[in-house]
Design a binder for these strands. Structure first.
Lengths: 95, 95
DNA sequence: AAATTTGGTTTATATTATAAACTACTTTAT
DNA sequence: ATAAAGTAGTTTATAATATAAACCAAATTT
């Protein structure tokens, strides 16, 4: 009947981050923070979680003297997102 | 960009319950438990929350000597579900 | 009448999310 | 040169959620 929803993606902020990364394939921390309208602390935590499970790659470097965090979705992340969306349909279908 | 997702509905079990209730308009606790494959304790708590915010009405009665809990979605609940689904599209659109 | 089943609720615990405080460094203004 | 403010995050503490386990009350079965 209802499919399990990946708890990693069933979070507003993490879902928004993945959704953005699917569109652009690479994005800065600050870009994600602006687009998701989240606090830096929360975003930092959620990016770490997405990285821990292998849904994104995180590259830390410096740009114009400032630290810069770049995020990229992985193949695994794309697959997880697609499955999440598909499973979600089992909840929305009856509406 | 991303719309806020109603935290009451952004829960796998509560969303499943509402999804079921939209289909049938009235359902027993036991029916919901079977269909959602949840534990009675968890379901009891989540039904209480849906009732607290006015998304469902809960009627307690007896049937064949046993207590029976009936749940019905309210107009407010239907509206909330529809809005949740619409807002969710802002997250899934780029996939 | 003891054990099991039905239909739940309550309570305790694990997991998540969020915000606030902090680190480390850079830029700007004085 | 130094103080104040800004950038780019991380860590930590707290609140909210979810889940499971234990419990309750009555009914049924053996």
């Amino acid at each position: 009947m209802f499919k399990e929803l990946d708890p990693i993606l069933h979070s507003q902020l993490r879902l928004a981050v993945i959704s953005l990364l699917i569109g652009v394939k690479e994005a800065e921390f600050t870009f994600l923070r602006e687009k998701t309208n989240s606090t830096a602390g929360n975003l930092s935590v959620q990016i770490q979680k997405l990285k821990d499970v292998g849904y994104i790659d995180v590259i830390k470097q410096f740009k114009d003297n400032y630290p810069q965090t770049i995020c990229k979705i992985t193949r695994k992340g794309i697959k997880a997102f697609e499955e999440y969306v598909a499973n979600l349909q089992t909840y929305l279908g009856k509406g």
